[in-house]
Design a protein around this nucleic acid. Structure first.
Lengths: 125, 125
DNA sequence: GTATCTGCAAAGAATTTGCAATCCT
DNA sequence: AGGATTGCAAATTCTTTGCAGATAC
């Protein structure tokens, strides 16, 4: 795989973001530096970066994927407002080897629930 | 929420399946019993059953959701062939309470890797 | 030099939605 | 009766893809 400024930029944007951006958000951020970059290129690079395990794809309930840097943490996702909260404090399960004869490469954990803010709103009703 | 034969059927099909079917597969299965059921109805009922926590939605890498009965197990998904293997044997993390002040309702775990069959194929090359 | 990557625009495809008719309770 | 649900079909919208030109190595 070749190095391109487009792919480097996509990776940098994700690594420097704390907001788990969507492809479209990444695209608009890219345009600030490469005016004529295309959305197709952003999608293609997101897919290849995921395959290379340099970033993570987050599947959201509304079918719009979000992307995240590759660091050891898990997510709490609010089912009311879709807020994503990063959680670093827990012991993360680590299946490093084999399950049966299947090779495990990654263990994805996400917590789902209702965030503090939404709980408060519901209490007020 | 009212009871309808359409929603009951969708739930039954999922509970009796071992194949993590897609919405379309569920739709075709439904048609065997309700000839004029519509795909839109299947989608609406899948969404409401997920909200009610009676079934689980599995987000796949090809963007086609699959659905599964609500039992305590996790999945191993092969990144080569997309095969899904149910895993019951592990101690499943259980965050039952709160993280910070966020209420946790569910803990989703999925393992990603390369299945035995695909490993064998790659060894042969 | 050449295979890979990009920009552009159109295509593709899963899912959602509007509306009138139907069905539960 | 009256509101929720359905069937139908069209709309929506995220994502992918074909192609010609540009680029990395």
């Amino acid at each position: 795989m070749r190095n391109t400024k487009q792919r480097d930029l996509v990776l940098n944007i994700i690594n420097e973001s704390c907001t788990h951006p969507t492809a479209e958000e990444i695209y608009f951020e890219c345009k600030k530096q490469i005016k004529n970059i295309s959305l197709g290129t952003v999608y293609r690079n997101l897919n290849s970066l995921v395959d290379l395990r340099k970033i993570k794809r987050l599947k959201m309930s509304n079918h719009i994927d979000r992307f995240d840097k590759e660091t050891k943490h898990i997510h709490f996702i609010c089912i009311r407002c879709d807020k994503i909260i990063d959680i670093y404090e827990h012991n993360i399960l680590n299946y490093t080897n084999l399950i049966g004869k299947n090779k495990v490469l990654d263990c994805k954990i996400s917590l789902e629930g209702i965030c503090e803010e939404c709980l408060k709103k519901e209490g007020e009703k």
